[in-house]
Design a protein around this nucleic acid. Structure first.
Lengths: 219, 219
DNA sequence: TTATATTGTATATTTTTTATACAATAATTT
DNA sequence: AAATTATTGTATAAAAAATATACAATATAA
């Protein structure tokens, strides 16, 4: 999980989030916010749920933040009207994406003190219901991995079967028997085999694969 | 599909829909709107997607409706401000439910000229993107039926295996071999067998089943 | 009592999944 | 150059699941 820490006193971690513009698709807004907050773009984002309970507000989080940052906030004109607006019920549309952690350099913005990768096992203390949102995203992803594996930018342009297996094991949190995993993935019928990859390692070189350029012109 | 026809000149069918109150959960709003427009309540509703493209507006639909109903609408004070508001981008959260068609008596409201059941094959001309919304709901339901069969009020309190099979065949649009279907469903481990049901038909009486009262107190 | 339609269960067959064995091979070491 | 090592690709065996088939049981009507 790529999670920014807010640029305020106190330990506040929050999923990258923002507002939908008046003339902006919700999907576009999700892409924009991800890009602005993390530098990540041109990626497949999946909407998974709306969070909109009547009592879903920033109030508890904001009160704690304001208490810890009274000095700085006094300078700016954070008036009562603005406070009232920000503590209204917020409705959030959740999206998730998957990226190759090595191919992305997260960019922090002025809003953020830092932006770091966290494993699911060691998430920091998230504001509001953001931890619940993460849990629900994971559940959704796990039940759709086979359909989604090539929509996400999980893998480089070409890759070995071992890399595919590592993605599956990371997402599903379990191990696979190598030989059967290979058969299963090839049976999905979405990969094509390329030449071999010589890494310099002292063992048989694995084949490279890529996703078939799908039947885009078949219909 | 239970679809109301709008109480205006012209043929406008629209999914039951409405607004979320300021102090209302989105889930609550969905329940309320369903109840108000159809009389159906105490039912499991499943949220499946948000529809919110920037150009998703009622304008085309409203213009056609106003054109056909100029006389009636002139009486009411439908001013420019109201028109502008109603033709803004609308964001809709889609929900679906499943009900036993025989156990529900749809209630039309003043908004509606009629409310009727339609098969998926013979849907009327829906306004806006409502036909797309229906298609997406069906796809979602088909891929989750096993998990959802007992959440929905698809079946009476007690029911026969044949009734379960009919639900599956209707939703998934395919047939099952009776003997294997029975084995599959019983293997899900969620049904318990009751006494037999004597219908008066000239054949062996089938067992009744009900969903196990789940392990609500087990944790 | 016999006939009819449908149900419940057993079992055979096929397919899929999982486990195991082993040859192939790209470098490294001897 | 041959032996060694680590890993890969493929074949196949074993187990499990899905599917097809057979048939006895039974609630009522004829």
């Amino acid at each position: 999980m790529l999670i920014p820490k807010l640029n305020f006193k106190g330990d506040f971690w929050a999923l990258p989030s923002g507002f939908v513009g008046q003339n902006e698709d919700i999907d576009q807004a999700a892409e924009r916010i991800l890009r602005e907050r993390t530098g990540i773009q041109d990626i497949y984002l999946e909407q998974f749920r709306v969070f909109g309970k009547a009592d879903r507000s920033n109030k508890a989080f904001l009160d704690e933040l304001i208490g810890l940052n009274a000095a700085q906030l006094a300078v700016k004109n954070t008036d009562q009207q603005e406070y009232d607006w920000f503590t209204k019920r917020f409705i959030s549309v959740g999206y998730y994406a998957l990226v190759d952690i090595n191919r992305v350099v997260p960019q922090k913005t002025d809003l953020d003190e830092s932006i770091e990768w966290y494993s699911l096992q060691t998430l920091p203390r998230m504001i509001m219901d953001h931890a619940d949102i993460i849990a629900e995203a994971l559940t959704t992803l796990q039940s759709h991995l086979d359909e989604k594996i090539n929509a996400f930018n999980l893998l480089p342009e070409t890759f070995t079967m071992k890399e595919v297996q590592e993605v599956y094991e990371a997402v599903l949190g379990k191990t696979f028997v190598r030989t059967n995993f290979q058969k299963m993935i090839l049976n999905l019928g979405v990969l094509e085999r390329l030449e071999k990859k010589f890494t310099g390692a002292a063992n048989k070189a694995p084949y490279l694969y890529q996703f078939k350029k799908q039947l885009l012109f078949a219909f």
